[in-house]
């Protein structure tokens, strides 16, 4: 082969290799930037948020509460607010449910007379304790971890609960019994 031809062929391959390497270097910040929010561990979004004094929640009732999500940007506006259902069973026994239906995330509504949560989207229904009653949901309502601190009801929250991102409790009864004593000072 002509030496100058083989030299050009080598330089061509070298240029491809060089650009491939630069492309790989460039891909790191691009992918990191795009996937940044996705690669962050879900639990790192969570922190304790106060829903209000426990006396605001009458015993035996289920009330709508809302809070500002712990992770927001100044331009989130109203979307940074989140609603949840607070059920005060008795005394210091609470359950805090996500507003999102376990089926497809629509906002469930509480009906005190029939003691049911109903979803407007596809008709999912849940009992007062959040367990699935009927309809398409594959499970009961998502439930937030909660504690009572200085007379205030606090929940651990920060991300939208879905089947994959539930910052939630599997078994509500065990959760209520195992609420750490040190966080529940007498009010």
């Amino acid at each position: 082969m002509n030496p100058s031809t083989s030299r050009r062929a080598f330089l061509f391959k070298l240029s491809l290799l060089l650009n491939g390497a630069v492309g790989a270097v460039l891909a790191v910040p691009i992918l990191g930037y795009i996937l940044g929010p996705a690669l962050k561990k879900g639990s790192s979004y969570n922190s304790w948020v106060a829903l209000g004094a426990i006396r605001e929640f009458p015993e035996g009732e289920t009330r709508l509460a809302d809070y500002r999500n712990p992770v927001t940007t100044p331009w989130d506006g109203q979307t940074g607010n989140v609603a949840c259902w607070v059920r005060r069973i008795s005394g210091r026994q609470f359950q805090v449910f996500a507003i999102n239906c376990a089926h497809l995330g629509c906002p469930v509504r509480w009906f005190a007379q029939s003691k049911l949560f109903l979803c407007p989207c596809h008709g999912g229904a849940y009992y007062a304790d959040g367990s699935r009653a009927s309809g398409p949901p594959p499970r009961g309502l998502f439930e937030y971890k909660h504690k009572i601190s200085e007379g205030k009801l606090m929940i651990s929250t920060g991300e939208m609960p879905t089947l994959a991102t539930e910052a939630c409790v599997q078994n509500p009864l065990i959760q209520i019994q195992s609420t750490p004593e040190r966080t529940t000072r007498p009010s």
Partner: peptide
């Protein structure tokens, strides 16, 4: 699933991102 949810939402909740 969780990765896709966060990639879709650009963060932990439906908001500005």
């Amino acid at each position: 699933g969780a990765l896709l949810v966060h990639a879709l939402l650009g963060g932990p909740i439906i908001a500005g991102a």
